[in-house]
């Protein structure tokens, strides 16, 4: 990869994949395995960042954007940690959820308008008793996103926001931003922003090819 010319030792040690026992610097990214091996390998910490906000921007329903997060959510429910869906755009369908390995007893759904949805997400994240909080908040602004990021940090929960791909150009406080798009009959996952990731231009994942 020619993006990094000659890395200094400090830069190499700064890589989140390297853990140093002696240093006061703790591993910076703790993560939740995504269940997609090729994605895990490329994300800092090896998965969805925990205690942080991840943003998934997608062009249309049905590109596999939920498939992307489902293995991690299913694993959480199997560990009896709660997963909250806030303001989902359609009905989450039980047979498919069970087939994906979700323990429905630990999945909750909250119906709410935009402001209430942001408030609910923040409460859930801050409470410290939710493993992941997933929201479909179309019109959320930068300030609210920032609040969610802080709430996720304080509650050490995994926050995920699904938004339209139009927002890709906008600024966002999220720790990880992924874009799910379709071309040539396959779905591609690109990374727009990631804390602690060495820059890459290649798509992270090719799905449904």
């Amino acid at each position: 990869m020619n993006a990094i010319a000659t890395p200094t030792l400090a830069q190499v040690l700064d890589h989140p994949g390297i853990w140093r026992r002696s240093a006061e610097r703790q591993p910076r990214v703790r993560a939740l395995a995504t269940g997609w091996e090729s994605l895990d390998a490329k994300l800092p910490g090896g998965g969805w960042p925990q205690g942080a906000l991840s943003e998934i921007l997608y062009e249309n329903d049905g590109l596999g954007e939920l498939d992307l997060v489902m293995p991690a959510l299913a694993a959480l429910t199997q560990e009896h940690r709660r997963v909250i869906f806030v303001a989902p755009p359609h009905l989450p369908y039980a047979p498919a959820l069970v087939a994906a390995g979700v323990d429905l007893r630990f999945l909750h759904e909250i119906h709410a308008g935009t402001t209430e949805a942001a408030w609910s997400m923040e409460q859930c994240l801050r409470s410290g008793c939710c493993g992941a909080v997933v929201g479909w908040l179309w019109d959320i602004d930068y300030r609210s996103l920032r609040r969610l990021q802080l709430a996720a940090e304080s509650g050490d929960a995994c926050a995920m926001i699904f938004r339209s791909a139009e927002h890709a150009a906008h600024n966002s406080p999220a720790a990880l931003r992924l874009k799910v798009s379709n071309s040539d009959e396959a779905t591609y996952v690109d990374v727009l922003k990631s804390r602690g990731l060495l820059t890459t231009t290649a798509p992270l994942l090719r799905m449904r090819a």
């Binding site: 709660r82 989450p92 039980a94 047979p95 959820l97 069970v98 429905l104 007893r105 999945l107 909750h108 759904e109 909250i110 119906h111 709410a112 209430e116 408030w119 609910s120 409460q123 859930c124 994240l125 801050r126 409470s127 410290g128 008793c129 939710c130 709430a151 304080s154 509650g155 050490d156 929960a157």
Partner: peptide, 30 residues
């Protein structure tokens, strides 16, 4: 460290219900 406010689910559940109403919180069933 204790996560966030260290609430348990029933407390959070009740807090959400108090503001959003009972109908807003649901679980999905097969």
């Amino acid at each position: 460290p204790i996560r966030g406010e260290g609430l348990d689910w029933p407390t959070l559940d009740e807090r959400l219900r108090a503001r959003l109403g009972d109908a807003a919180l649901k679980q999905i069933m097969q």
